[in-house]
Design a protein around this nucleic acid. Structure first.
Lengths: 215, 215
DNA sequence: TAGATTGTTAATCGATTAACAATC
DNA sequence: TAGATTGTTAATCGATTAACAATC
């Protein structure tokens, strides 16, 4: 049964949300069991990889039968700790910060936004939706008074590292980094980067490569 | 000299934007030359990997000297085709669409947003910034009249696949997919996914793993 | 029981790192 | 020239795929 694999390879971990999504779709379609073979056909992966991946975390299937869809969903949700609620603050109340706030609010997710912070004093006047926007100078004080799990960085590149240092100083456990800044790895702090601009460069690379091949 | 490597491995391609960023920083600091060793120390990678990666595209360095920073920047920009301007349309003018529009507008990037589209007729009244917002029913017509390179998908998951089919039908060359929908691979169409929600699940996984290890 | 499909080990493949000859 | 550092080949490492015995 489920033994927590402390060190599953990252490529495996990054595939788990995708398994979760496909299984949820299957559940909606009323499918109650699925074999690694069938799932691999849907997902465009290999049956072997699915079995291998899942077995880093435990034996969730049954020989001769396959995987029970709803049980496997619960198992993956446990592994990813999707059920827990994470208290988040957003640093940077500009376009990106607002966007992420709205985007997260519309997800059925487990990220709860407590407050936003910005260096622009004028922004602190507005209430962004229901959320208070505080001046960044009040960040330390806020973090002393509230338990915060995740800081969502949405500041310009130039203030990225400083913002990270501030929330780390305040005792944050994880940083979800939407800035283009490269944050220094810090012992005990989880950093997850969403490099949107890099993603676009990869797209343009692939586009130009495709052109090249046509010639 | 630069020979275009039609099939550099994707892990290598995905590292190129990071090289580009670090080199730009070096340039700003007035550094004119750098060795793979020095660069690897800055980036937290290995000198060997840097040399190996760059050599998929050509020999940009000089033995006994290292790499000329500005020349290497130009070379990488050529590879990623950063100089070309890509004409984009955004499908979905909700929170996410607006966010991406604002975010891209603030980048010094090579993505030019031509228009936005939405199924919500009320949205087509507003002018989002300087951009026109059209009803999605006019997408086909629009694409016949304008050359569009990239469609940026910002619609809800449920309409993701349909939106993709529409822009592909309209002759799009690439899709930058911000939806949670899994778009089917289509011959000749470049698809680049930004799976924000998956990124958060990885973060929560790492967070819970960290907790576990403390026990 | 027989058939199916897992869990798991072994083989292969690809990516990273190390080493070194080429050369500026 | 001597020292430094690349370009490139060889060795290692890790991830994916294949195979099959275990078992439902």
């Amino acid at each position: 049964m489920q033994t927590f694999a402390a060190n599953a390879p990252m490529p495996v971990v990054r595939r788990l949300p995708k398994y979760h999504k496909y299984l949820k779709e299957l559940l909606e379609e009323g499918v109650t069991k699925i074999s690694s073979k069938e799932l691999s056909l849907r997902m465009g992966s290999t049956a072997s990889q699915i079995r291998q991946d899942l077995n880093y975390f435990g034996g969730f299937g049954q020989q001769g039968y396959g995987y029970n869809v709803s049980e496997l969903i619960v198992a993956i949700e446990d592994i990813l700790s999707i059920h827990e609620v994470y208290r988040c603050i957003i640093i940077g109340a500009g376009n990106l910060g607002k966007a992420i706030r709205n985007y997260i609010a519309n997800l059925d997710g487990n990220a709860k936004i407590l407050a936003m912070f910005d260096v622009d004093a004028s922004k602190t006047q507005e209430k962004e939706g229901q959320l208070p926007v505080y001046h960044t100078s009040r960040l330390k004080e806020y973090m002393r008074g509230h338990e915060v799990d995740v800081a969502i960085l949405c500041v310009p590149k130039s203030s990225g590292v400083r913002a990270a240092e501030e929330v780390i100083g305040g005792g944050i456990r994880a940083i979800w980094n939407f800035t283009t800044a490269d944050l220094p790895q810090t012992e005990g702090i989880v950093i997850e980067n969403v490099a949107i601009n890099e993603s676009f460069y990869v797209l343009t690379y692939l586009l130009s490569e495709k052109m090249q091949n046509k010639t």
